[in-house]
Nucleic acid binder design. Sequence first.
DNA 1: AGCGTGACGAACT
DNA 2: TAGTTCGCCACGC
Length: 103
Amino acid sequence: MGTVFQQKVWDALRQIPRGRVTTYGEIARYLGTEGVRTVGTAVGKNPDAPEVPCHRVVPSTGKIGNYSGGEGTPTKIALLMEEGVKVVQGRVADFDQKFWQYD
DNA sequence: AGCGTGACGAACT
DNA sequence: TAGTTCGCCACGC
């Protein structure tokens, strides 16, 4: 499929526990790059949702960010809600608690 | 081989 | 507090 870098990104996504979220910046750090935009681009090019939980990735601002599957952002929100991540007014509720980072 | 693009981020006004 | 600007860097043309 994609490039090595891409696969590393997707692999990083698989490590995100259900019901938790992380940020593009966190993934960038985990992969050892400063180009967070590159990560965003990589995630966006991922084949599709269920296999890789790309909906668990949100911007550091706690907002929802973007999504390419289904109806876009609304679908992303729906998926998060199903996992117990409350989303209110386009933002992740209790973002600090839901935030997950690579140990 | 060079240039623009982008599911972001942080600083600035 | 909100809107804008500049920086990050891998990828595709």
